[in-house]
Design a protein around this nucleic acid. Sequence first.
DNA 1: TTGATTATGAAATAAATATTTCATATGATG
DNA 2: CATCATATGAAATATTTATTTCATAATCAA
Lengths: 288, 288
Amino acid sequence: MANVYQSIAEKIPSMSKAQEKLGKYILQNPNNVPFLTVGKLAKIVGVSEATVVRFATFLGYSGFPELQEDLQDSLRQQLTTSERLQMSTQVYDDEQERWIYDIFQDDISNIRSTMKKLDIEAFQKTVNLLLDANKIYIVASRSAISLGMFLEYYLRIMLDNVEFITSSELIAEKFYQLNKKDVVIGISFPRYTKSTLKMFSFAKERGATTIALTDNLLSPLVPYADIPLTASSRMPTFIDSFVAPLSLINAIITHVGASKKVDISKKLDELESKWDYLDIFHKKGEDG
Amino acid sequence: MANVYQSIAEKIPSMSKAQEKLGKYILQNPNNVPFLTVGKLAKIVGVSEATVVRFATFLGYSGFPELQEDLQDSLRQQLTTSERLQMSTQVYDDEQERWIYDIFQDDISNIRSTMKKLDIEAFQKTVNLLLDANKIYIVASRSAISLGMFLEYYLRIMLDNVEFITSSELIAEKFYQLNKKDVVIGISFPRYTKSTLKMFSFAKERGATTIALTDNLLSPLVPYADIPLTASSRMPTFIDSFVAPLSLINAIITHVGASKKVDISKKLDELESKWDYLDIFHKKGEDG
DNA sequence: TTGATTATGAAATAAATATTTCATATGATG
DNA sequence: CATCATATGAAATATTTATTTCATAATCAA
């Protein structure tokens, strides 16, 4: 049997009234039906339980559980297909060329899976916490420093209370008097560095509000996080990709900047004149 | 509790051995578990049915069916999210939610357009130049430092001749005796900082081979570049997105690592023992 | 309209699934 | 190494879910 839904659709013309009601409901609710029991489905559709069972046998199954299994398989199928996406359609000139593009494709699917798993509520909480924070500390080490720097650079444009900490040496003093209004963002991806973990857990212990930016909920940072935010970093190579985490950081920065609490255009104007004074940026037509 | 998975992840540290096995399995198989019965889940994970039931109550549910329902709800939630992503014109719960996803979408299209415009030949030349270089200098300033750091971190794992320069102060001395075998990678995106431009053009003048990592061929870096590599960074916000450039850097690093000229596994083994000696990374089961 | 045929639901029964009990194993503590 | 506390699984029990039975309702042909 190719496809449950297709098979149901085909047989609708030869169904009785009650069966047709069932068939149509199933076709229209493929996300709910796989989880329902005979009783629930019967009640929702407005037929008897017996009719539901007869419907399953009418379709050629030995009973309702078999039909249910097929419906569940279809749902799982859909889940994995939407993850895989139309990755593999393109034809490449040679193997190496293909492989170059594969890296980009992997990054795209990392972003997609990050999007899908994103906990909107946690995201919005993060933005609000940053806006209301007394002081914001970013902690990261090793390769994650690059992410931390990026976050710091843009947060600093908008807020004046941002500090980036990459070494645990002065932590004891710096974190001595933390409180709830201080927000500590810990950034760590496999293989999680001890020093980031140490700084992060210390911050939590000292009473700060902690936000973890990491790869999944099993990360060692999560137990110490008030808010965990996850972004996929998996790559089939020796490096982890920070592309999806960076995209998540982009989203955070953008939303902080979009808040009414930050007058971004005023801030940018100020910076503009400062930059102009210091002659930092290239002007068109000018020579390097 | 907002999210089942989050709640499970939080409680993992306080779980017994068998419960931990269950928790991890559930977190790692969110697409299958919602369909399983107590018996099946117990068998797959390798614990008794009783343990599964106790696990549900441990999490605060009245029994397994309640936990199952929550898991099923999450899956349905995810399904509707992924469906939304597939049909990008969908209506979102509210405007803000839509906008969060838009950032990710923009990053994905930046990667796509980077891929499309990628000059394969220039890319391969870049990889070869890095492999054969006498000395590699990375120059970047301001927000682009984050990209430079990432590139430096991974190149350094593979090669021993990498230096990152972020300030133009000592340039005169450092770049005095450059030659063709020295490779200088300049990273600059709008608004191009003068100091990067200055360092980059100086390097070219002193005879180095120059690679520009920038947003398009009209960038002020390009006239001084032997090889220009471009990656899209456009965003409809006040920040530029470095997501696509980072993906390009990923591709470069991966390809350098894949070359036969670099014995990456040997390098990684060496680093491994060094890291182990210095006790840098978190080990599973260890406390923060 | 009548009688035969088919479809349907309520209730009884069967099967599957979840929970509890109890004996044993594991691990920590003195 | 004995003692206690805790964790675990096998088996018994309870509960839920699926199926079957049977009486009745709807449909259709003559």
